[in-house]
Design a protein around this nucleic acid. Sequence first.
DNA 1: CACATGACCTAAC
DNA 2: TGTTAGGCCATGT
Length: 98
Amino acid sequence: MQKINIEKLKGTKFQKKVWKALMQIPKGKTTTYKELAKKIGKPKAVRAVANAVRANPCAPYIPCHRVVRSDGKLGGYSGKGGVKKKIKLLQKEGVKIN
DNA sequence: CACATGACCTAAC
DNA sequence: TGTTAGGCCATGT
């Protein structure tokens, strides 16, 4: 499905793990940093996960916009348009925002 | 190697 | 209910 290989990108193993988990998120669905951290085996490394996500090449390689906070709010977005675009994208995919 | 940063989370005031 | 403080982990300087 993924046209690109994360392994081909440069970054630490931790990042690659996070990015892979991101791509594994089904469309129209959202995940929290906590769940993501848990998935990679470090439920306490939520901050490191957030760092990895923000350090990713972002659009259009990795759907970082599918990652939200536990509060239902969005975190941030280092892409074009900013968080606003992120919200729009999620809503377009059928995700409800607080 | 030590310090500082961050798109976080939880608890406490 | 809104803000502050502490804890946690990886990355970059």
